[in-house]
């Protein structure tokens, strides 16, 4: 493709002009946290395949104060993602069973599903303490 699309000049801080734009940028920033945390989890899986000592090293890294701060920030950004994702889901993909399902029903089902999955993961993990 040999084309040079016209790029309309924009001030670099265009998103500071309206609250909605600022919120959009904060929400989009969550992807950076999720990317880094995804890489962290990949590293964890890798260390798990490298044996007990490597796994213990990765767990120790998770307990580093800076990592705990990062986990807190990532959790906050992830919850922002989760809430906005559920809020927009019925508008992006309207659901229909014979007639249109109200947006609030779809949202309630999704939040309920997230609560069940979260409880199941934490419950299954906590069983390891018994």
């Amino acid at each position: 493709m040999s084309r040079r699309p016209y790029v309309r000049p924009m001030p670099a801080n265009w998103f500071m002009s309206k609250p909605a734009y600022r919120f959009y940028m904060v929400r989009e920033a969550s992807c950076v946290f999720n990317l880094v945390y995804g890489l962290n989890l990949f590293a964890g899986l890798w260390q798990l395949t490298n044996g007990a000592e490597a796994w213990a090293g990765w767990l120790a890294l998770q307990a580093h104060p800076l990592m705990i701060v990062f986990a807190l920030a990532t959790l906050a950004m992830t919850l922002l993602h989760t809430v906005t994702f559920v809020e927009m889901a019925p508008r992006v993909m309207p659901q229909q069973i014979r007639k249109m399902i109200p947006d609030n029903t779809v949202k309630a089902a999704m939040f309920g599903g997230i609560a069940v999955v979260t409880a199941a993961i934490i419950g299954f993990t906590a069983m390891g303490a018994m």
Binding site: N34, Q62, I121
Partner: peptide, 12 residues
């Protein structure tokens, strides 16, 4: 949206 809150909560 579904999995990360629980994973980060536990692991992090």
């Amino acid at each position: 949206a579904f999995l990360m809150p629980a994973v980060i909560l536990i692991v992090g």
